[in-house]
Nucleic acid binder design. Structure first.
Length: 277
DNA sequence: ACCTAATCCTGCATGC
DNA sequence: TGCATGCAGGATTAGG
């Protein structure tokens, strides 16, 4: 499931592989992947346009074109971009094919069909509700303890779903939230507004170090994640709690537990991460 | 305005 | 072996 490190890895791959290429034609094989505009308009407006830059905001990829337009793309659970050096028959779960004028192709493949992309004016990207609600980018200097603490103070729900909802800080998903809360020894059920300033100050470098380490490893492949080179990540070997229920905590050897919290599988150590009070 | 639950999808694991 | 069931989950939407 792509989170910030995986999306960033894909971004870097696409930046190398498709920037400078001109779109000759677009084929949409599963219409629901395209949120807007209508599929025919999506294809027509892209024809003849060139990719100029690939950006990222949270878990969204922003594929910039030379006509002041941007494809806003979210991979959700299993979305993948595969670069093809020559014309290639679409694979089973390929839903969108970008054909370039140099005969290379970019295939969007998504087994569960959850991913979505839309073509919008670049100036309008920031006004999209999904983009507008995004909190601070965790790998920037704007991610500071004081504002992080203030953001958490506004939420009464548990810290885990608060970190998942993207409004306080963006880019974290189910895997990395479990990992950073284990590292910070914070119980995932702790109300967000009970997280102390000290814990906020501890969490920031933990989150940044975790995300940077994962990016350095090409991300985490738990189910099917692959980057634009069709390479899996390596960071899954570094996970301390996710998917390790029943196995001993690497700090205290207490068996790790898995619970359901806000509809999400949640892994933690009941000894290292006690629920206070 | 808040929280929870349902929704979208497919592949895989499990159970009978 | 085959079929039914359950589970995984990011973001949106519906319902309480």
């Amino acid at each position: 499931m792509p989170e910030l490190p995986e999306v960033e890895t894909v971004r870097r791959g696409l930046q190398r592989l498709v920037v400078g290429k001109t779109i000759a034609n677009v084929n949409v094989l599963y219409a629901k992947t395209i949120l807007a505009p209508a599929v025919a308009d999506f294809c027509a407006q892209l024809r003849g346009k060139k990719f100029t830059q690939i950006d990222r905001r949270g878990k969204y990829l922003l594929l910039r074109l030379d006509n002041e337009m941007t494809i806003v793309s979210h991979l959700r659970m299993e979305g993948k971009y595969f670069f093809k050096p020559q014309p290639t028959t679409p694979e089973k779960h390929t839903h969108v094919v970008f054909q370039f004028t140099d005969q290379t192709e970019l295939h969007y493949n998504d087994t569960r069909k959850f991913g979505r992309m839309q073509l919008v004016q670049t100036a309008a990207v920031a006004t999209l509700p999904a983009i507008k609600k995004l909190g601070v980018e965790p790998l920037t200097k704007d991610f500071q303890a004081a504002s992080f603490y203030a953001g958490l103070q506004r939420h009464h729900k548990a810290i885990k779903p608060t970190l998942l909802d993207q409004t306080v800080v963006c880019g974290l998903g189910n895997i990395y939230v479990d990992e950073v809360l284990w590292q910070a020894k914070i119980n995932p059920q702790t109300p967000a507004d009970e997280i102390t300033q000290e814990q906020c100050a501890q969490l920031i470098p933990i989150i940044q170090k975790e995300l940077r380490a994962s990016i350095a490893q090409g991300g985490t492949t738990v189910h099917s994640y692959k980057d634009a080179f069709a390479k899996t990540g390596m960071f899954q070997d570094q996970l301390k709690v996710y998917g390790r229920e029943g196995e001993p905590c690497l700090r205290c050897h207490t068996p790790l537990v898995k619970i359901k919290l806000a509809q999400r599988g949640t892994h933690f150590c009941p000894h290292c991460q006690p629920l206070k009070k």
